[in-house]
Design a protein around this nucleic acid. Structure first.
Lengths: 162, 162
DNA sequence: ACTAGTTAGTAAGGCGACTTTACTATTTTG
DNA sequence: CAAAATAGTAAAGTCGCCTTACTAACTAGT
């Protein structure tokens, strides 16, 4: 039970740490690229985009898909509506509901954003090799499936020493 | 230039999205395990732990290593000191400075936490295969090196349509 | 048709994890 | 020894959420 050894081992090759830092860096770089040609957009906005269907999506459905509260979605949508990227139109089938969809400007901005992402991935492939990047995507997909399948915490009590 | 096609392609196999979600899930599961036998610890606390040396580390150095402000470190350290996990002692070489180090309880709690992490990684290897997990760690290491070597934004202006 | 219960969305306030700006107390340097 | 740098603290602000509490609209049961 050598504390130092455990500690050292934990520092290098810690999957969680690696994931966290990669995720943060990649996200920062992506967002800063997008902001450079579309100021006002923030990182949190982008989390909603992949969940908006072309024919429009209800806010409650966006909240469900993104895993955040209706109120948070409300705020994000309001901000992006203010930027002219999204539009809300009343749901024809339900007087309480609204459908959120892309404006024409939003569609074009999104296309630009996607082009940036493709370029980033391209640069990454040039630096790391196409194979490695594709392998990474595949392995991460497996990992995500695994993590999402885990039913929260499966653990008996442990005693706290001291 | 089909919008639908681009959108669909972006949704599946998006490295950023994968990283973000894996990172978040893994972190949540790890923290919830740790909390189950050591309540009061929060996710943000753990971000500091790998940077605390055995012989103690100055707060300004912790801030530098963790990439956050001195004030943020100050708050985290204060909270963990309150939990009895860390201790601050005046730096013998500098009257302004304090050295942050683990208390005996903190060391034991950390050992338990590390054991949990090892167990998580073990379960993961059983589910995904040892090879895949090790490959993932290695590839993520490469990706991190690449991302950290990038000098912020290298980009010319793009015109915003509209 | 009318009440009861559910659902879509809004409002207000709070919290966690930071940051910025401004400060004090030391230390180093010229 | 004065000037600049550095370690840490204090206070207030920001961002991205959540919880609680509501209104308005829809749906089902009688």
């Amino acid at each position: 039970m050598s504390f130092e050894k455990d500690l050292l081992q934990a520092k290098r090759g810690n999957l969680g740490q690696l994931l966290f830092r990669c995720s943060r860096l990649l996200n920062e770089q992506g967002v800063s690229r997008i902001q450079s040609f579309f100021p006002g957009v923030r990182a949190s906005h982008t989390s909603l985009l992949p969940h908006i269907d072309l024919e429009g999506t209800r806010m409650v459905e966006l909240a469900r898909r993104a895993g955040i509260s209706k109120q948070a979605v409300g705020q994000l949508v309001q901000e992006m509506e203010g930027l002219g990227l999204l539009v809300r139109s009343p749901d024809p089938e339900d007087g309480r509901a609204w459908r959120v969809s892309f404006s024409e400007l939003g569609r074009q901005a999104l296309l630009q954003g996607l082009a940036q992402l493709r370029q980033m991935q391209q640069e990454m492939k040039m630096a790391l090799g196409r194979e490695r990047v594709e392998r990474l995507v595949e392995d991460l997909g497996c990992l995500l499936d695994y993590l999402e399948s885990k039913p929260a915490v499966t653990q008996g009590e442990s005693s706290v020493p001291g």
